[in-house]
Nucleic acid binder design. Sequence first.
DNA 1: AGCTGCGGGCCAG
DNA 2: CTGGCCCGCAGCT
Length: 375
Amino acid sequence: MLKAVDDAIIDQKDPASRNGEVTSWDINDIKLPQDVKHTDWFQEWPDSYVKHIYSSEDKNAQRHLSSWAMRNTNNHNSRILKKSCLWVVACSNDCSVPSGRKIYLRPAICDKARQKQQRKSCPNCNGPLKLIPCRGHGGYPVTNFWRHEGPFIFFQSKGSHDHPRPETKSEAEARRSIQKAHSAVPPTSPRIKRMTLFFLKSLTGEMQSQETFPLLLSKQEDYISPSSFSGHLIDKTPQEQCMGKCCSGSTLPSADLHCETIVLQNSLDSSIQHTPSIVPTMKSGHQPFRPNMSLPGNEFNEGKSHVNYNSSYIPSTLYQLSPEDPFLVTCAAHHKYHNSLNPMKGNEWDLEEERKYMNLDHCNNEMFFNLCPMR
DNA sequence: AGCTGCGGGCCAG
DNA sequence: CTGGCCCGCAGCT
């Protein structure tokens, strides 16, 4: 039904044709190009009628990742994986966080989880949430297609997202982790207070990333990547700003936690509203982002060297902030792996286990002190 | 608990 | 027939 429209638009926008080596193909073609000389860099926010050819080695492509909330949809073709956009969750009150940015949450992919999510309230103003539909593909949600062929993974997007970007997957996971922490740990917990303080202090740091460099907490409250906090420099102390603007007059017993959520949200919608397509380069080497070059932290990268989206080099390191209260700062790529190796015992850390996986040799001193304001 | 992929089935055009 | 979507299941994290 939409095929004619798609074809017309694709002919105009096919980036894969720029090289001249791959003139045109469609995901439904019986035979896809095999003489591909250059694969594309992984695109976190594919939009409009674009096509990409990724290397089959690309982990992100292998996982069919997207920062848009996309769900699997059955096209009765096992060779082509089809996904459609799940819209974006926004605040009905159209509220803004202190930075002035709007709340755009990532819809849960699982149907049940999404229904549950919609019954929840805005993390900022507690108002009801609403869905902003995606109708960018002839009135229907944008669809993405993935097809594995030999050494390549072909990607095709149909439709333009006509709504704001949601949180990235990593950010949504981080938010859930914080919510879990809220329910698992008493709000007055010194640990939570210190974590909140750390979050807030991070705001005034020199982190430069404007992008989706993820902020992730572990299942309980463990890992933080402060470079998510950026672009929110303020003249009051962060505590003052948050307590004044977010929690003023709050009778909530968990006012400090509320602040923490808002701060997180700052980082989240910052990334949402400022994220261009990602083509970061190494500060020193001007190397393009390649699938195996690894962006810091999230699902969009793997490996040891990290390049944030603003070209700052981030060491792949865990930082222990306090021996007696070991929050760890790490790139998010490690957090799941790390967590899987370090299950919490109740709410307490197993320090021995922790030390096993700490690698302070990698710790870049400058980064360390930037990231460890509590020392 | 939630993400992801698969596939059966239904419906509209 | 194609495309959109719902649903349940299974594997995984």
